[in-house]
């Protein structure tokens, strides 16, 4: 709890919040919540998607074919442990988006198994998909905010969906907005915010239900380098609270700078899976660049 107050305290100055990242504070326990945990949630049995022990994301021989024999993924097996920070890289058409859309059951695998938090999504009933999505935070290149709602209302919607009381929504939304560095901008509409700020709103929305897995599809694709840096720092900070973060990107500079685990896709296959930069050995995987 002390840690939470700390975060909120620092967040009123965005810059200071980010110095936290650079000095690398001591690691926090993996299950520490980003904001105050929900207290008055009414949940019916079976409505909650709780990740079990074991890998957070697991692909076992996943093949995804689209109509006309177009291959999205062509036999991908990979495992991402809870708490990892992973980059998914590759050119457009390499299968990054397919990978991500499979994780949130926007798509279903043609064959193989997609296992999230120990649950095989192939066996997940359609009516349970919303509960899966609440357990995963999603951030996209185009932000995907509701255009006629303010920043606060956008974040609040994700809380309303999970059945939180109005008091709880009113309490948690400002907290989380402060956390992503949007203190005092809650009343702005998305179009009144800069690209970076909009992306922060969408990250706030992704975080507000305290997901154990955060997936970002080209989160910096529409942003300039400085703003991108800020977003990546924010994602790093979120990862440090124990949230598994999976970022699909083709932003070479960002990946090189972060030096994290990199899974490289090419034509629907994994061509490299190692820690380091975007492309450590150009001779080995030259076709990706």
């Amino acid at each position: 709890m002390a840690r939470i107050d700390d975060d909120i305290h620092h967040a009123d100055s965005t810059q200071r919040a980010f110095t936290l990242v650079e000095v690398r504070p001591e690691p926090v326990p993996a299950d520490l919540a980003v904001v105050t945990p929900p207290s008055s949630e009414k949940r019916r049995r079976g409505d909650v998607f709780r990740p079990g022990p074991g890998p957070m994301v697991q692909f076992q021989g996943v093949i995804k074919r689209y109509d006309g024999d177009v291959r999205g993924l062509d036999g991908v097996s990979v495992s991402i442990a809870a708490g990892e920070f992973v980059f998914l890289v590759g050119q457009s058409g390499s299968g990054k988006s397919t990978f991500i859309r499979l994780c949130i059951r926007e798509l279903r695998a043609t064959s193989g198994h997609v296992i999230i938090g120990g649950r095989d999504l192939g066996e997940l009933r359609r009516s349970k998909v919303p509960y899966l999505r609440r357990a995963i935070g999603c951030v996209f290149q185009d932000f995907r905010l509701l255009p006629d709602r303010t920043a606060s209302e956008n974040v609040a919607y994700a809380l309303q969906v999970t059945g939180h009381s109005r008091q709880e929504v009113n309490r948690r939304v400002p907290e989380i907005l402060a956390l992503v560095g949007l203190d005092g901008k809650g009343d702005r509409l998305p179009r009144e915010l800069s690209g970076g700020e909009q992306q922060r709103v969408s990250i706030a929305r992704a975080l507000v239900n305290q997901p154990r897995l955060l997936i970002a599809d080209e989160p910096t694709g529409n942003l300039d380098p400085d703003t991108s840096q800020g977003i990546m720092d924010l994602l790093t900070r979120i990862n440090r609270t124990g949230t598994t973060v999976l970022v699909a990107t083709h932003d070479r500079d960002t990946v090189d700078r972060m030096q994290q685990r990199v899974i490289a896709l090419h034509k629907g296959r994994i061509v490299r899976d190692a820690e380091g930069g975007y492309n450590e050995d150009p001779g080995d995987t030259g076709e990706i660049a």
């Binding site: 919303p130 999505r133 609440r134 357990a135 995907r144 509701l146 919607y157 994700a158 969906v161």
Partner: peptide
Amino acid sequence: RREVEVMRLVGATNWF
């Protein structure tokens, strides 16, 4: 349509 898409994305049930 996009709005409905976003709603589904953040885990809104169909009835919601």
